[in-house]
Computed example of a mutant assay.
Amino acid sequence: MLSKGFEIEIYTSTPEGDIVGLSDKIVATLDGFVREPDSRNVEYTTPPCYRYERLLCDLVRPRARLREYLKRLGNFTLTPGSTLALGHTDRFYRSDPANPYHSYIEQTYGTRVVTASVHINVGIADPELLLRACRLIRVEAPLFLALSASSPFLNGAVTGYHSTRWGLFPKTPAHVPLFESHAHFIHWTEQQLAAGTMQNVRHLWSSVRPNGDRRPYSLNRLELRICDLVSDPISLLAIAALLEARLLQVLDDPDLDPLHRSQLSATTRAEDLITLTDANEIAASRLSLDAELNHWQDGSPVQARVWIEQLYQEVWDVAKRQGFSCFLLPLKKILREGNEAQRWLKLYHQGLDVRQVVQQAIRETEAQELALQDSLCQPLVA
């Protein structure tokens, strides 16, 4: 098995769903939380871990601590979803006014980046194997977006996206190639820094990127960045299990590399794969599991839900041999009942307004986390 960890960005709010900026207080008081450029969300990171049972508690415990602290501050809670669903996108609420990088982000992107998401990090020590893995996950990243979409609302309205976050997010630089080797990644990154299209090595905002302690030279993990915030920890572990099983496959089988396996034109394959994948990301951001995508192997049309089901069947034996196939099972429920965005839109079309949908999601998420804390994790220490 591979080591795994999550970066979780989440909004703080009132129980009525109004987002409130509290990250300065949270970061000053609670260990393990860091600020984002806007004060209305806060981030915590789980330590690298191999076992899914441990990962579940690592996801739940910090949120339980955060909820307890928010109650001490006042009548505050956490809001699921990945966009400012009820509004206030007109201005930035700076968490660190003296930070020049935050100033650049605010001035360049505005509130398009005031989103909440999940980044899944998976350890891969060999840089060439890591870049091969990044190539496969890059072309299949739209499937992970389809499973995780949770942002159908913005400013109190339905947007037409299932993932408004990814539909509007300023992917940076605008064009990111399919890196053919570690040397290619190093050279390209140095070019971007020199040209100013990246302000620093962190300023690579694509669906997936190689990561490490001294980027781009020292790399040790794949970071999947495309997922919306998945409020259900069980569902998030299922998505991570699909990712890990797929990575185990490509690490074991060099022929899974899209630069080798794809039947697209050999002379333009690398660029054609990026064009196809970019279009798939747009389609998945709009219709998630119901989106019609084009398969990277031959360009054939396939519904996202069908493609995910095919991958599920393909990776099952890999996950079973490694002892984590049971954590794949919740994917069946997502495919059957829909992701968060689809479930929320169903409630909206049944007559609830956006605020009512958000409020119900807040209550359900808190109840689920408390149940998991009580049944699976050690009692919260005050």
Score class of each variant (00 low, 15 high):
308 I>S: 10
319 A>V: 07
238 A>V: 00
227 C>G: 00
208 V>Q: 04
214 R>Q: 10
326 C>T: 08
212 G>P: 07
283 A>H: 13
301 P>K: 09
218 S>Y: 07
292 E>V: 07
235 S>H: 13
304 A>C: 12
284 A>P: 13
215 R>I: 11
299 G>M: 13
210 P>R: 04
289 L>T: 09
334 I>K: 13
253 D>H: 07
294 N>M: 07
259 L>N: 08
240 A>T: 14
271 E>C: 03
283 A>W: 08
264 L>M: 13
265 S>G: 14
290 D>P: 04
264 L>Y: 05
301 P>D: 06
298 D>F: 08
269 R>G: 05
312 Y>L: 12
254 P>R: 12
278 D>F: 01
272 D>R: 12
309 E>N: 06
246 R>K: 11
255 D>V: 04
311 L>C: 02
252 D>I: 00
312 Y>F: 15
334 I>W: 14
215 R>A: 09
296 W>P: 01
213 D>F: 09
316 W>C: 02
321 R>C: 01
235 S>E: 15
242 L>H: 00
316 W>L: 12
271 E>F: 01
223 E>S: 11
275 T>N: 10
311 L>Y: 06
257 D>L: 02
318 V>I: 09
296 W>T: 05
335 L>Y: 05
275 T>R: 15
263 Q>L: 11
268 T>G: 04
253 D>Q: 08
322 Q>C: 07
257 D>N: 11
205 W>T: 03
259 L>H: 09
325 S>K: 05
279 A>C: 05
204 L>W: 13
239 I>E: 12
336 R>T: 00
286 R>N: 06
276 L>C: 02
277 T>G: 01
327 F>Q: 07
283 A>C: 11
317 D>S: 11
273 L>I: 02
330 P>Y: 08
321 R>E: 14
310 Q>I: 01
224 L>M: 10
292 E>S: 05
298 D>S: 10
306 V>I: 12
210 P>M: 04
243 L>F: 10
282 I>N: 10
334 I>R: 13
304 A>W: 09
272 D>H: 11
215 R>P: 10
282 I>Q: 14
224 L>N: 04
232 D>N: 15
260 H>A: 14
222 L>T: 02
271 E>K: 03
299 G>L: 05
314 E>Y: 04
295 H>S: 14
313 Q>E: 13
300 S>G: 11
237 L>S: 01
313 Q>F: 00
325 S>Q: 14
217 Y>I: 02
257 D>M: 01
220 N>Y: 09
267 T>E: 14
234 I>M: 06
288 S>V: 02
279 A>H: 10
240 A>Q: 15
306 V>Q: 15
230 V>Y: 06
243 L>R: 10
321 R>L: 07
304 A>P: 12
315 V>F: 03
274 I>Q: 15
253 D>L: 02
224 L>F: 06
290 D>H: 14
320 K>S: 09
270 A>C: 05
231 S>K: 02
333 K>M: 08
293 L>G: 07
282 I>R: 15
280 N>V: 05
281 E>A: 03
319 A>I: 00
308 I>K: 12
267 T>K: 09
322 Q>F: 07
210 P>A: 11
331 L>S: 11
227 C>E: 03
228 D>Y: 03
271 E>M: 03
292 E>N: 03
298 D>L: 09
319 A>K: 08
292 E>M: 08
271 E>T: 03
282 I>M: 13
269 R>W: 03
264 L>G: 09
